[in-house]
Design a protein around this nucleic acid. Structure first.
Lengths: 275, 275
DNA sequence: GGGCACCCATATCGCCGGGGTATCAATGAC
DNA sequence: GTCATTGATACCCCGGCGATATGGGTGCCC
């Protein structure tokens, strides 16, 4: 199976429409129809159920969509990482914007002092995006937060375990309490983070894309946030953090693709675990 | 990058010889040379250092070899798993030949009794091969033994933790002892298992490919073996198991590709954890 | 219910690119 | 110096990919 065929199939499977998929791929619709037919003939399985009005995935098609996305990511990762060995930074580290700031700074300082340290590029992104970057080779290593981020398929080392706090605007009624429980949070306007497809879940709170934006919304009194205790570092005094004594603990982990064998990555992970 | 290009590159990188690689690929040498040049031009990186006498990998080439193998496995897995949804068994489970026999039997029985259970194909293979089968889609789920088998990149659930015993021929001097320590094993003829490349490590013991063969070698007095306690089930009386009280505990885990979302697999794993 | 819009499939053509053979060029062995 | 080895180059051919034009089936609307 060629990656071209796989890309074509994934496009049709996602769009559920040959015309739109062809447009997205920058080709005409007839060759796309033919390519999918050839793919079905070669694999020996019907992948799409077409009527004249709609396109649906068969069971085999659903499997090929899921596995094919992972395979295309792996191919992209191979190309990106090979290219980066010559003209890019030695390592690309990705973390959520605004999260683990203090830990990240300590890690970068400690690694830079290591003999043989390579240049480390830091990417900040929205929640849930780190996984994608790690899979398709745009990043080599990530800081993730269990249990919020998916660590499936990566090697990980635990770095820090901490509790969570509720972050409120300074004048909020709850901000004077020495501690809170999850029950106190019920009904408050919790922010809604983007789903993997770019949409947002339903709910009352504001839509938010990164932690800097969230901080502003909290200080404006438009939202409250449940975040790890360490997020209080560098907080302006118009936002107050109150410990949530019964919130699930958050583990900050360093994660990397399981098959990685680079010396630089191994050094960085070793430094991280010794912080 | 097309899988064809990647396959060509991996062949040359592994053979370190354009002629042999071309032969292995079933094409002539000139188009292979040209394909590699095109790949280097497209990726924008020199992948191979050629002299007229030998071919060597550049740093970028080494990265592309490692990542490319993983990517090709992922593509193969996509095709195999899609094809299997229609004409193959619902699940393929792989375990080491002769290992976890009792647990495996219990698991298969319990899962078969589950409502909505699909057909489960059982593959037995040599140590270390399960990982490959899981990666390239020939298997969906595996029984592995930590810390011996690599679980990197898979989701796992622990099933059983057990100690290890030394397995000896019935007449062996140590066979009468009620328990042993690792120090007692030093100098005994431990079997040598195949390496991933098919060769064997150096050493005194006999070369062995599976547990049935090992059992025979032990009963013939040609080898002794350190195996999990549960291997004593179904043992003939010409082999004796003596507990090794200071051996590292072995955890039998069920492992599957992290991105798997199939209902059948989820059921099987759930049944396994409840055994 | 007839016309219409929508959407995937088929037919046909042109061209790019991958594969083959013949050959060259560089280098190390003797 | 000669020869064997090995990757690169030159050149040709054909299959396959993409484009355009068109067909055919189906739901919708007046």
């Amino acid at each position: 199976m060629e990656t071209r065929e796989l890309r074509y199939f994934v496009a049709v499977a996602e769009e559920r429409h040959f015309g739109r998929a062809a447009e997205r791929l920058g080709i005409a619709q007839p060759p796309l129809s033919r390519a999918i037919q050839q793919l079905e003939r070669r694999v020996g399985v019907r992948l799409l159920e077409r009527t004249t009005r709609e396109v649906d995935l068969t069971e085999a098609g659903a499997v090929l969509l899921a596995e094919g996305r992972a395979a295309l990511d792996a191919v992209d990762a191979a190309e990106r990482r090979a290219r980066r060995t010559v003209d890019g930074p030695g390592l690309v580290l990705v973390s959520k914007a605004g999260a683990s700031e203090e830990l990240l700074a300590k890690l970068l300082d400690a690694y830079a002092a290591e003999p043989g340290a390579v240049e480390v590029d830091v990417q900040l992104c929205g929640p849930g995006e780190q996984e994608r970057l790690l899979r398709d080779g745009r990043a080599d290593v990530a800081l993730l937060h269990r249990p919020f981020d998916a660590t499936a398929g990566f090697d990980t080392e635990d770095l820090v375990v901490e509790g969570q706090s509720l972050y409120l605007p300074a004048g909020h009624p709850l901000s004077a309490r020495p501690e809170l429980r999850m029950a106190d949070v019920a009904g408050l306007p919790l922010p809604r983070w983007p789903l993997p497809d770019g949409g947002y879940p339903d709910g009352a709170g504001p839509e938010v894309r990164d932690t800097a934006q969230l901080r502003q919304l909290v200080s404006l009194g438009r939202a409250v946030a449940v975040l790890p205790d360490s997020a209080r570092h560098g907080l302006a005094d118009d936002v107050v953090a109150v410990p949530l004594v019964d919130a699930a603990p958050v583990t900050t982990v360093v994660a990397w693709p399981a098959h990685s064998r680079s010396r630089a990555l191994a050094d960085l992970v070793r430094v991280a675990t010794r912080l």
